[in-house]
Every structure is written in C-alpha cells, then in structure tokens.
Design a protein around this nucleic acid. Structure first.
Lengths: 208, 208
DNA sequence: ACAGTAGCCTAACGATTGTTAGGCTGCTAG
DNA sequence: CTAGCAGCCTAACAATCGTTAGGCTACTGT
C-alpha cells in the first residue's frame, strides 16, 4: 500500500491560480448550505470537510476558525444587501414605491445569498454575539432604521393600512420576508411574494 | 462546611404532589425556551439544568434523554394543533372560511405553544430524523394534506388569487405563518397577521 | 416507626468538538 | 534546478458533549 499522503486530484484542472475550481469557494458554498440546513452549532468542521472532500484540519488553511468561516459567509451577503439599500436610499421614490423596492432588494439578496440569509435568519443568537460580526450587526441597525423611516413615511402618506404601528410592522414584515428564504428558489417567484405581502392571497372581490 | 448534598428548597412549597411548582414542567418550559432561541444542538443539558436551578444529571430523573425531552415538548404542541385541525375538518365551512380558520388555528397554537412551534420550525432537520417523533411527523403529513385540500377548494371557488399553484401556496403560507411564531406575542395580534396574509399591508385604494 | 422512593447531588465515563503540530507533495517563481 | 509555499494529510490536544453510577436527603404511605 502506497503511503498515500496526498490524494491526487480527480480532474486535470490546475491549481486555483487558473481560476477553475477554487477550493475556498467550495468550502464557503458547502458550509453555507450545511449551516443553513442544520444550524451553525449542529454542523461540525468534519462534516463540512467531508462535503468538500478534504480533511477537517485542511479547512484551517482557508479559514482561521469556524467563526471566521461563518463571518466570511455573512459578510459577503451583507455587502450585497447594503449596496442595494444604499441605491434605494439615494433614489427619489414615493413612500409606497420605496417600501416595495426594499422588499424586492431583500428578496433579491435571497437569490444571490440564499444560504447566508437563512443562516442570519436562523442563528440569530450566534450572530448577535460573534465578535467577528460587529460590522454586519452595525449595518443591520442602519438597515432597520431605513425600514422604520420608509414604513413611517408610507403610513403617513396613507399608503399602508393604519392598523399597524410602524415598528411592529417592520418586525412583522422582516419575519415574513426572511421566512421565504427557506423556500426553494424555483417554487415561488419574488413577484408572488411581493404580491402576497402587499395584497394578500385572496382574489379581488368579484361582486364589487 | 456542611456536606451540602442537598440544597434546601427555597420556598415552603411541598413536593409536586400538592401541584405547586412541578419541576418537570419547569424543565419543559425552560428547555423549550432555550431550544427555540439557540437551537436544539446548541443548547446543552448543562445550560438547561442551570436555567432550572439543578444539576445536569438531575434532568435524567425527569427525562430519559435529550431526545425525549425534545419529543415531550413537540408532542404536547402537536396534540393541541391536531385537536384544532380535527374540529375544522368536521365543521361545515366554505373554502375561504376554512382557510382562514386553519390560519387562525395555527396562530392559536403559537399562543399556547410558542416555543414548541419555533423549535419545530427552526430545527426541521432534527425533527425529520428523531425516532421519537414519528407520530408528530405522521400528523404533520395529515395536516399538510388538509391544507392542500383546503387551498385547492378555495382556488376552485375563485376565492384565492389564481396566480398561485396549490402546493406552492401551501408552503409559502406555512413559512409565512410559522415565521410569526418568532415575534413577541404582544407585538402583533393574530388578527393583524390574518389580515396581512389575506389582504396584504397596503391600505385600500383611496381613489377607487 | 420504618421501608420505599422521588428528587437531587458529585463524580466520572467514552465520544465528539474545535483546533494545533508537524510533515508530505507538487506547483511556481527566480 | 531549486527554494518556497499552497494545499492537503495524519495524529493528537484540551474542552465539552450527553449520559451513567452511585449515594444522600426528605418526604410518603402503611
């Protein structure tokens, strides 16, 4: 039996310099999927390594710790959604249109960073206490403030049902939106979700 | 220093036979809260024991294992929601009314078993594989079928927007409903949630 | 009065956790 | 050709996990 030591690569692809299959990206993708599905603490480094076809110790050549791996996943997603929100902040939009644009931005983030969104949504207690996620948390606070202002403006303009208090509606809307990150992307379209949030599931009254 | 051995009870309450403070119920409540907040696997038996003011080993006088503790929490909640669904199944309701009744039953379960609902919603992978939860899983399948039939009936009656496929709408509705179990109970009323799901957040058009 | 037991304790078990140490291989820059 | 390093390996570490063993205490029913 040969001393093994190094498993030969399966395909003819060269190292990641050629840009073919960057193992770091594989680790990011597989771990994000597992974290989202089973939870951060329930997903061990060895399970992640198995999914990537390497040994647990080898993960530490790409990320210094499990926390840093989680942070890398969430920071990516945070940068994306922050960019979208910044664009909305600068755009001259009417209250209800701004609200819809923010909903669509949130849902768009699910398309590009679905697993990250699910992790953020699911393991909130972890996110709240990780020292590597202060930036993400600070941005989240800013996002919440933008949501609050936008909802208050839409309420003041009479475009949103007056039965809601602004802050309660923000939390309700966020929970409702974030929960849709758990759906398979091809099942329900963003348009459908926006429609439900704005108009509900019922058909327009026929007899009116 | 006294040999300690047994910490004297704080209050004058007698054992649980008198029904004052049943420690088993305390364990159920505290563990449910912790499981819901941090996840099942992230919540250790020692943390649960701390929250109950006892030692980790003492938990095993009330529950044979961590799995059984989880099962006890979820089985309670399952019995409640199953009873509600059974009543709806027997009631002669029009499609849209039945759908609303099912939404309200689900939300009512959140009031009585909020943490259990959050655990079921959050740790789906765990629920799917626990050998002690076959009964709960079987009931969930039956509930899904009731949902599917009710949605199909409401669709056929033209009471639900035809843009949705029945099964996709069921999954969407479930995610939306379940996500509201994460909200503090006093923030948004069940009526508000029902209103959003049925009619959305927008105010009725003023100029029509 | 006394046996039985519910309910808690301390101490420890083996398994698994995240992580580190140290070495081998094969690519790449000079 | 060769030095260096990226990338992976095996082996092992201390800490923590769920769980068990065994004993003490205080209440119960007879």
């Amino acid at each position: 039996m040969p001393p093994a030591g190094h498993v030969p690569r399966a395909g003819p692809e060269v190292s990641q310099v050629a840009g073919r299959v960057n193992k770091r990206d594989v680790v990011l993708r597989e771990s994000a999927r597992l974290f989202a599905e089973r939870g951060i603490e329930a997903t061990t480094m060895r399970v992640i390594a198995d999914a990537c076809g390497i040994q647990a110790a080898s993960l530490y050549h790409h990320f210094a710790s499990k926390d840093e791996l989680v942070a890398a996943i969430l920071t990516r997603s945070d940068a994306h959604i922050t960019g979208l929100y910044d664009a909305i902040l600068d755009a001259p939009l009417e209250p209800a249109d701004r609200l819809e644009a923010m909903i669509r931005a949130t849902l768009d983030n699910f398309v590009h960073h679905r697993d990250a969104a699910r992790i953020y949504y699911r393991d909130r207690a972890y996110v709240a206490q990780s020292p590597l996620l202060t930036r993400v948390r600070d941005n989240a606070v800013a996002h919440d403030e933008l949501w609050d202002r936008s909802i208050e403006a839409a309420l003041a303009a009479g475009r949103v049902s007056p039965r809601f208090a602004a802050i309660d509606l923000r939390r309700l809307l966020q929970e409702l939106m974030w929960s849709t990150a758990r759906l398979r992307g091809d099942a329900v379209s963003a348009d459908d979700i926006v429609h439900v949030l704005l108009h509900g599931i019922l058909a327009p009254e026929p007899g009116l």
